[in-house]
């Protein structure tokens, strides 16, 4: 009866017993999700590496040498050198996008991997952070492969400057991983992702300066291109390859971070609505 007296003495406080002590929340709770994806990737790395790395390389070298012969110099450098930064950003984008669309969708929807993880102490935040960082890691690998080719073929002006491409790659990967997770959250099936590619990715690739300088575009299109994340990734990457500093790095970084954060947070919200309601 002591309990009752206590309850009366402290209304609303001692009515329910205190919870057992809780372990401190760790900022690394997402890591097992990343590790799981890494383990699977290691098993299937062969075809994955070929698709992620060989494809953009073939495009870059094919277009660079082939078209380069007709084009001569673009912005004062051989076309292949001009193309290198665009290919780098494009390849990183593609890698992060494919991972968060098709691969993440299969884990979420087809294999129910996320459901299985959500039954453990991990939460949806951990799952999506793990996926975000995993897709970023894969895109880092794609970016590194292109960077390696840039180094080997000497397509750069200042080696030390090209090291700044590493954070650019990571930031670009984060951006498109975040956006991809947002799309993944609302996808009813794999076919849905075609809309994303046709309506967003492809026009963006054509407008953002992968293949030609954006000042070749009509003024209104060039202005519209400023709203696209890939434009800002290339605005950072190209000067670093060509040996000068980006004109407005803070703006570029800010835009990419904003897309990454918005994509991830909206994706988290929409995925919660999809899986946990």
């Amino acid at each position: 009866m002591r309990g009752e007296t206590q309850t009366e003495a402290m209304p609303g406080k001692a009515a329910t017993p205190a919870s057992p002590p809780s372990p401190r929340a760790s900022p690394w709770k997402w890591l097992p999700v990343w590790q799981r994806n890494f383990q699977v990737w290691k098993k299937l790395a062969g075809p994955s590496i070929l698709g992620n790395l060989a494809d953009p390389l073939l495009y870059m070298l094919g277009l660079g040498y082939g078209l380069g012969r007709f084009l001569g110099e673009v912005q004062g450098v051989p076309y292949l050198t001009f193309l290198a930064a665009g290919t780098l950003a494009y390849s990183v984008m593609n890698s992060a996008t494919f991972e968060t669309l098709y691969s993440a969708f299969s884990r979420m929807h087809v294999q129910k991997t996320w459901d299985a993880i959500l039954n453990t102490p991990l939460t949806l935040n951990d799952v999506l952070l793990g996926e975000l960082f995993w897709a970023t890691s894969k895109s880092l690998l794609s970016g590194l492969a292109i960077l390696l080719v840039i180094w080997v073929l000497g397509l750069y002006a200042d080696f030390a400057m090209t090291l700044w491409l590493l954070p650019v790659i990571v930031l670009t990967g984060l951006t498109f991983a975040g956006l991809g997770l947002m799309l993944n959250a609302v996808a009813p099936n794999y076919d849905f992702f075609l809309y994303y590619f046709t309506l967003f990715i492809t026009p963006m690739v054509l407008l953002s300066g992968v293949f030609y300088p954006t000042d070749a575009l009509p003024a209104w299109l060039a202005a519209a291109a400023q709203g696209l994340p890939l434009t800002h990734a290339i605005a950072l990457a190209r000067p670093l390859v060509l040996g000068y500093w980006p004109e407005a790095p803070l703006l570029n970084v800010g835009v990419l971070l904003a897309f990454a954060a918005a994509g991830f947070l909206i994706g988290l919200r929409l995925t919660r609505r999809r899986l946990l309601r």
Binding site: R36, Q39, V40, K43, L44, Q111, K112, T113, D115, A116, N119
Partner: peptide, 13 residues
């Protein structure tokens, strides 16, 4: 421990 209704094992593992 949770045993869900749908199979959610990792097929690649």
């Amino acid at each position: 421990g949770v045993v869900p209704q749908a199979d959610s094992l990792d097929p690649d593992f």
